[in-house]
Design a protein around this nucleic acid. Structure first.
Lengths: 225, 225
DNA sequence: CGGGCTCTTGACATGGTTCAACACCGGTGG
DNA sequence: CCACCGGTGTTGAACCATGTCAAGAGCCCG
């Protein structure tokens, strides 16, 4: 179980900035935003040209409290969303991979409810909320798609709740790794071998353990990393 | 800190079955379903006549896997939603009080994703999903309201996640009781004195502790029950 | 080559669970 | 009315999983 090297740039950085999302995005087949936009394709006319954003490892996409101006869809890279408690402790609330949307948890709000930070060099499509609103207004099917996407997030949140409430350290880690494996498999990557873009500490924060316990549990688990 | 007696019937069982929700429901001021329906009032004409359901303590509103035919709004009483793991352990995923909606977590699904069980004698309004769909289709504002309600659920889920991940037993219990107090205050009841309708075991399940630890932590906490 | 990361490991402390016993209360039947 | 019974709540003791602390290894980067 090895960590990612410092700045790997695992995917080719396709230069596709001012292009329709579905044209040449490597994640087009799996991209939720793509499904959203195709559901209402041409609803916004050739307004479908996407702006993109690049982040280097460690850079923030938005901060907690920032005005919500856009959602984002990951093209390449990995993003974590996280919050802090009043006493300074930090808590990772989600990991996001190519094809995932970032910022959904703040869609109903005026200010972002979390921080979003790149775990590696990352490129994202920008989906201005006003454009999204206009598109959903003109295309009901798009709203349904969005609704399903939100439901998936809620499902995952419930699964996490039961995991945190009644699983042991090793069960949590195994479950987490299986989730990752499923996610990679769904994107067409190997589910039996992959690189962890997040640190042990970030994993531990997400599943409610210290980094030392994450390591100890990974020792106990089969090496079927 | 005392538990509820066996069958208290704390609220008067108003016989209001075939009446518009807002007419005589004691929770009208706080009812999410009421807000939903008023947002689209007369959208469905006098179809607004509500069917209601009564449950006695321990009875189920629906079972995991049942076909999703309706949402419910609590008039009087308390409901828990819960799931079970493959190895038989049970996990409370939510408590629901007068004015709350029950079944929202399954709204995007064809089968309920949890069990819903009454913690005391309870009366609910029935909101058929097809009626809800019709109403949202004809009244966009209603969809927005629903969207906000779903977001509130998601917020609570995130708060629970951080609670389970990084709070101690006593912190969890205190937080849980404060949530209850806030909820009662928002409904116009006393926030400093109230009856726990759920057992220690159910509380423990919800906040990831055993019933013994719930007791031990409640001893430690101030008696500001 | 040195500095600062993350990762790893082991010893130790401790919060929470487990287990067992008992108190309390309401309901039920004699 | 009383005795019994089951469910829930309470308590304490022993155990164990996990957190805490400290030290060192490996690696990337300047």
């Amino acid at each position: 179980m090895t960590r990612a090297p410092a700045r790997p740039l695992p995917c080719d950085p396709v230069p596709c900035d001012p292009m329709p999302c579905s044209a040449n995005c490597p994640m087009a087949r799996f991209c939720l935003a793509g499904r959203l936009m195709r559901a209402g394709h041409a609803a916004a006319g050739d307004d479908a040209r996407q702006r993109t954003v690049r982040l280097r490892k460690g850079q923030s996409l938005y901060l907690l409290g920032d005005a919500v101006t856009a959602l984002y869809a990951i093209r390449v890279g990995t993003v974590k969303t996280h919050v802090t408690t009043e006493d300074g402790r930090t808590q990772v609330v989600g990991f996001h991979f190519p094809g995932d949307m970032v910022g959904l948890d703040s869609l109903a709000r005026t200010q972002y409810a979390s921080y979003a930070t790149a775990l590696e060099d990352t490129k994202l499509c920008v989906i201005p909320v006003q454009a999204l609103h206009a598109a959903t207004a003109s295309t009901p099917a798009l709203g349904n798609q969005l609704f399903l996407v939100l439901d998936r997030q809620a499902q995952r949140a419930r699964a996490l709740q039961t995991m945190l409430a009644l699983m042991t350290a090793e069960e949590r880690l195994v479950t987490f790794l299986l989730w990752l494996a499923d996610g990679f498999a769904a994107r067409g990557f190997s589910s039996s071998e992959f690189i962890l873009r997040m640190s042990r500490e970030e994993i531990g924060s997400y599943i409610g353990l210290t980094l030392e316990t994450v390591i100890a549990s990974s020792r106990g688990s089969t090496t079927a990393d």
